[in-house]
């Protein structure tokens, strides 16, 4: 494929050479027209709100009425806000449990999809939980794991084990929510990883098989190293998404008991829409924004996302 391109390219460039300037300009307009819908969406729904969010973080604002500039007061308050630090700890715990379990399971599923089955039905069914709306998944598990009427606790009870207040106890709330979301997202993550695995040339595996390498050895020596750039991408996306957990908590524990599951996004929502502190909530969002940039940057650097071992 690449050989063909190198042969063809010079000829077409040579043909176009005389009309190059005009062509460029018309291509530019065409390109602009093509990206305009997405660009408009980006400007209106991402860039402008982000900039305005930064501005609001420096104000006191109740949404009704106009914002009052207060400088860095909100950020100073955040530094002394115990609920913020609790919610940060809670969120990080959530992300750790969610990402570790989700990534390990997704790689496992990816390998199975890649090496074991070619059945579209099986591959497709792994994606099923992801096709259900987040809120529905949350409510489904909320019900399954209910202390009194949930089937899981009924099973535990019949086995003679102690019932667990999955969503109600401050110890279990976050692990439960994290694992519910792992269940929903692992199929999708596995699909991304599987797509990455398909870019690894079959010839490498064939060569390894000829040399007598076991599946286990091939996984660690071929799949994992060659998958690294994809894995980084997947991790950056899933970690960022994981930090933004909201709906599952909002429809189940709503932050409780106490503040045991008050994740950052929920705290931001509470402050803004529950208590009308939009300036403070914006400042919290800015803090989350900075955290996410830092985490994504660190991941890219630490895992050398820009390089591939395949070249």
């Amino acid at each position: 494929m690449s050989a063909q391109a190198t042969v063809e390219l010079p000829r077409s460039v040579a043909q176009r050479a005389p009309r190059r300037g005009r062509r460029r300009r018309s291509e530019l307009w065409f390109a602009l027209a093509m990206i305009a819908p997405a660009g408009l969406g980006f400007l209106v729904f991402y860039l402008y709100p982000t900039i305005r969010g930064f501005y609001l973080s420096l104000t006191e604002y109740s949404l009704l009425g106009s914002p009052t500039y207060v400088g860095t007061e909100n950020f100073q308050a955040i530094a002394h806000d115990e609920v913020f630090w609790t919610s940060l700890r809670v969120t990080i715990l959530y992300v750790l449990i969610n990402i570790v379990s989700q990534t390990v399971l997704a790689i496992g599923l990816g390998v199975l999809m890649h090496r074991l089955t070619k059945s579209a039905l099986i591959r497709g069914s792994l994606l099923l939980p992801y096709l259900i709306a987040n809120v529905v998944v949350a409510l489904l598990w909320f019900w399954l794991l209910d202390y009194h009427i949930g089937i899981v606790n009924a099973a535990l009870d019949s086995l003679g084990l102690t019932k667990v207040a999955f969503f109600g106890s401050s110890t279990w709330a976050i692990p439960t929510i994290a694992l519910v979301n792992t269940w929903r997202h692992m199929g999708y993550t596995a699909l991304l990883i599987f797509a990455g695995m398909q870019t690894i040339p079959k010839s490498v595996y064939e060569a390894a098989a000829v040399d007598g390498a076991s599946e286990w050895r091939m996984f660690w020596k071929i799949t994992m190293p060659l998958l690294r750039p994809i894995l980084v991408l997947v991790l950056v996306i899933t970690v960022t998404g994981s930090f933004q957990v909201f709906d599952t908590v909002a429809v189940t524990t709503n932050g409780g008991p106490g503040n045991a599951s008050r994740v950052l996004q929920l705290y931001i929502f509470d402050q803004a829409f529950g208590r009308s502190h939009f300036g403070y909530a914006s400042a919290l969002s800015v803090v989350l924004f900075v955290i996410l940039i830092g985490v994504a940057f660190a991941q890219m650097r630490l895992m050398r996302a820009g390089e591939s071992d395949l070249d």
């Binding site: 729904f45 999708y188 699909l191 750039p229 994809i230 996306i237 829409f273």
Partner: peptide, 24 residues
Amino acid sequence: MKSTTLRRVAPLAALPLVLAACGG
């Protein structure tokens, strides 16, 4: 090779970000 894969995966990857930005 690498860049093609990224391009193929990227639109899918953007999906959860878009979905996450839901309003109430």
